[in-house]
């Protein structure tokens, strides 16, 4: 438990490190430099790697769903998102409904 608390606090410090560096650096370095472009690339790639992994090779309760169901949920979510003029809540709701209904159709209890 102490280990977990320390981990969470360390993750908080590791995050605020970058936010707080902005206090002394603000006004002194341009916000559109090449280093920042690279930082943005790493951030995008890292989040995308996690999300792709969570959809394609899930752990936990999502292992009870099929890959085709998860991909369909993402696809329907995307369609609903753009059909609703980038309504994120609508997209999430659509994907949620797909994963629940497809599981129910395969014979799971709701």
């Amino acid at each position: 438990m102490l280990e977990l608390a320390l981990l969470v606090l360390a993750c908080g410090a590791a995050t605020d490190l970058w936010r707080w560096l902005g206090v002394p650096l603000s006004g002194r370095v341009p916000a559109d430099s090449e280093v920042f472009a690279w930082i943005g690339c790493v951030a995008y790639a890292m989040v995308a790697s996690l999300i792709a992994r969570m959809v394609i090779l899930p752990s936990g309760v999502l292992t009870a769903t099929l890959l085709s169901e998860r991909l369909l949920a993402c696809a329907v979510g995307l369609v609903a998102y753009y059909a609703g003029r980038r309504n994120l809540l609508l997209g999430i709701l659509a994907g949620f409904v797909v994963i629940v209904v497809s599981g129910w159709l395969r014979g799971g209890s709701p």
């Binding site: 936010r19 902005g22 206090v23 650096l25 603000s26 920042f36 930082i39 951030a43 890292m46």
Partner: peptide
């Protein structure tokens, strides 16, 4: 976690 948080630096630099 820290590597994904690096993206905050250009945000705070431009906002503060």
């Amino acid at each position: 976690v820290s590597l994904t948080a690096m993206r905050f630096l250009p945000m705070t630099v431009s906002f503060l």
